[in-house]
Amino acid sequence: MTADLLLFAAVAFAVFGIAVLRWAWGLARRSHAITGGGWLLVLLGTILGWLGDGAWGTAIVALGAMTTALALLAFAASTSKPGKVPASTRRTGMLPEGDEPKRIGARTLTFVLAGLVCAVVSIGIAVAANMLAKALGLGAADALALAFFAMPLAWTVLSYAVLMATERRRQIRILAYASVPSWVVATMAVMT
């Protein structure tokens, strides 16, 4: 019963927080206090959800907040007025335009670096994280879970960093630095 009440309060805080954010972002002049208050309510709901039911409670609170936001969004869509604001024509540079060279080789190399090479480097980071965690005294299960989560997260950050780099040399430098853990793992494997 107490747990149910706590969860209800947690979801209510988060839902109210989203409503406050909707109000804050609809004001003619930006109010940091109201926006901050909205975020604080969402945070409070999340904390209550965690205190009451751990990860399960947090997940329920997050779904409640997101559902409220989608409902408000649906209302915004249903009440929006017809308009003719010109949409963006911003170039993303994905395909050549006009007489621009196709640069298929360079694009393929970028794909290989951001995809395959980043994946391999991320595995090295994950295995190194596992070794380091064990060396720092973490249990085998904790170190293993850390490695399983580290791999996709490292891949995400690395591929983003590689794609954000404007020069090939910088992309390779990022990957070289990131591959240091892999070399450490490989060296230790050879030595043992």
Binding site: A76, K81, P82, G83, S88
Partner: peptide, 25 residues
């Protein structure tokens, strides 16, 4: 995050749907 010009023509509505759904999900 709550600005959804769903009845705009010329591509803006599509971009708004994409961005708003992305934020809240």
């Amino acid at each position: 995050a709550f600005r959804l010009r769903a009845r705009d023509t010329g591509g803006l509505a599509l971009a708004d749907w994409h961005n708003r759904l992305s934020v809240w999900s």
